[in-house]
Every structure is written in C-alpha cells, then in structure tokens.
C-alpha cells in the first residue's frame, strides 16, 4: 500500500513541481498580504514590523469613519461604478449591434481596431491625452473657446466638471472592450432567426427588439453581475492620473483606491490607509460572493467557481 502510494507520488511529482513556481508566487503576492490585513488593527511601527506592532483594536476604523472623507470616497466609488455599469451596457450593446451589421471584412476590422485602441494604452498616457484637451493655457478646448471669444475654463480647478470628464474618459477608454465583449455574443446568434424574420417582413428595429436583445440577455446579466461584484473597486489609474492628483478636485475624483494610496504614500497615515484598505477588501469580498452566488443560481456555467 505504502509503496503503491509512493509510486503514485513519483508519477505525479513532476506536475507538483510544475505548479510550484506559481504556488510560491501566489503565496508571496496574494496570501501573505491577506494575513497582512491584520495591520488594520495595529498601530504600525516601521521598526517593529507587521507582526511586532501593537494592537489598537478598532482605533483606526474609528478615525476613518469619523471623517467626511470615508463617506465621500464610498459615495464616489459606488456612484461612478453603478452609473458606468449601466452606461456600458447601453453603449456596448448599441455598438455591438452596429458592428454586427457590417459585412465587409476590411471595414469591420478597421472599426474594431479603432475602438479597441484606447483600451490598450496606459492611464499615464491617457492623462497626457486629456491634458492636451483640458490644459488651461495650451489645451485644445480652451484654444477653441478663445477663437470664438469665449472665456477659458480652468478644468483642473473645478470639481463640478469632473463627473463628466471622468465619464467621457472612462467610456473613451473602455467602449471597445465592452462592445467587443458583447459583440462576441451577438455573433453567436443564429442567422436563421433573422432570415425568418426578414421573410415575414420584420423591420430591422423589430428584429433587434424581438431577437437580438432577448438573445443577449444572459450576456448582459453576466456583465452586470461581474460589474456589481466589483462595485467597491475603482480604477486607480483613472482617478489618480487623469485628474493629475489635484487636491481641489477630490470631492469629485477621490475614490477608496486613491484615498488609500494618498494616505499610505503621500501623507504617511498608515492607520487610516490600512483601515480603508481593509474595509475595501472585506466589502469587495462580500459583494463578489453575493453576486457570484446569484450567478450560480442564474447561469451556473458563467459563475467563477
């Protein structure tokens, strides 16, 4: 029995060795930091390290939630995400349906390349693109305003413009990803339905309403569920780079991720940072579990596990 087990082990050993580099990497990169979450309950001291620092109970959380910022960053993170999930669906489905109409290969390839391009560049470069338009002195938009004799706008000093600017930049960058994702499902709808509908004299609009949209329902539900699971995460790059980390804009541009970064590396308030980071990790975990659970009920093959 033992020798049999030994032989089995020898047979499988190469596979365990193959898995080993990744096992070690995930331990270092993912599992150790999960243990490191304990720092949120401690008064972090560089000399004493993560384990040696003194416990302070819920002190860090009391500080965090006594500030207005805790409310602002939660509101901004949730608000932008919820709005964008639905905007993504609307624009993504529309663009995917248009893409599906195009029969010419070259044209289709051109459109897909063009709309996906913004998705491929870094947020730092995006901030330069945005700056080329929005800079107060040399921006393209203000240059246009000047030629028409209008007053220039200090975009980077007024929080009220930023919900719009961030939405435009976000959609500009992600439209291709969303559209192509949904397009993959639109392509999968059998042509027979449309042919039958055409013979019966259905207009295009009727075909979209009666065939395409109902057939896309599972994809839409899946994408909304994934989006809802990540509703407490924000794209750090978008909120940090595009507003160029200007404090004046914080009421409109600060999210949990930018707040954690600033507290950790710019103001050095590790207690505050770790409490906010812990809060995000836990709430994220809960939302992901809840929405993945819903997914399992609704369509098991699309659930993560």
């Amino acid at each position: 029995m033992i020798s049999k087990r030994k032989a089995g082990f020898r047979k499988w050993l190469p596979f365990y060795l193959m898995a080993l580099p990744c096992i070690i990497y995930f331990f270092v990169n993912n599992y150790l930091p999960m243990g490191g979450l304990i720092i949120a309950f401690k008064n972090y001291n560089v000399q004493k390290g993560i384990l040696g620092s003194d416990f302070v109970g819920l002190e860090n959380f009391r500080f965090l939630f006594s500030t207005d910022e805790a409310w602002i960053i939660t509101r901004n993170t949730l608000g932008y995400n919820l709005f964008w999930i639905f905007l993504n669906m609307f624009i993504g489905v529309a663009v995917a349906i248009f893409l599906n109409e195009v029969r010419t290969r070259v044209a289709k390839k051109f459109y897909m390349s063009a709309i996906l391009l913004p998705y491929l560049i870094s947020m730092v470069v995006v901030s330069y693109l945005a700056y080329a338009y929005l800079s107060e002195q040399t921006g393209f938009i203000n240059a246009i305003f000047k030629t028409f004799g209008l007053h220039t706008v200090a975009w980077y000093q007024n929080a009220k413009y930023w919900p719009f600017i961030l939405t435009i930049v976000y959609e500009w960058k992600n439209i291709g990803f969303n559209a192509i994702t949904i397009f993959a499902s639109v392509v999968g709808i059998s042509k027979d339905y449309y042919e039958a509908a055409e013979i019966d004299g259905a207009t295009k609009w009727q075909q979209i309403k009666k065939i395409t949209l109902p057939m896309l329902k599972p994809t839409i539900v899946m994408l909304i569920t994934i989006g809802m699971g990540n509703v407490f995460r924000s794209d750090f790059g978008l909120f940090y780079q595009v507003p160029r980390n200007v404090g004046l804009l914080n009421s409109a541009t600060d999210t949990i991720d930018t707040f954690v970064f600033r507290a950790l590396l710019q103001t050095g308030d590790i207690g505050m940072a770790s409490a906010a980071s812990f809060y995000q990790s836990i709430v994220c975990f809960i939302t992901i579990m809840v929405f993945n659970g819903l997914m399992r009920k609704y369509s098991k093959e699309n659930a993560m596990f």
């Binding site: 995930f26 990169n29 599992y31 930091p33 999960m34 490191g36 993560i50 980071s277 812990f278 975990f285």
Partner: peptide, 15 residues
C-alpha cells in the same frame, strides 16, 4: 481564491 479576495494595497505594500 486570489480573484475573490485580496489584501489590498496597504498589506501588499507593507509585505
């Protein structure tokens, strides 16, 4: 599991 739960920036950074 690494997709479901993570330590976040502070814990990762300090680690």
């Amino acid at each position: 599991f690494t997709m479901l739960f993570n330590g976040g920036l502070v814990a990762t950074y300090l680690t």
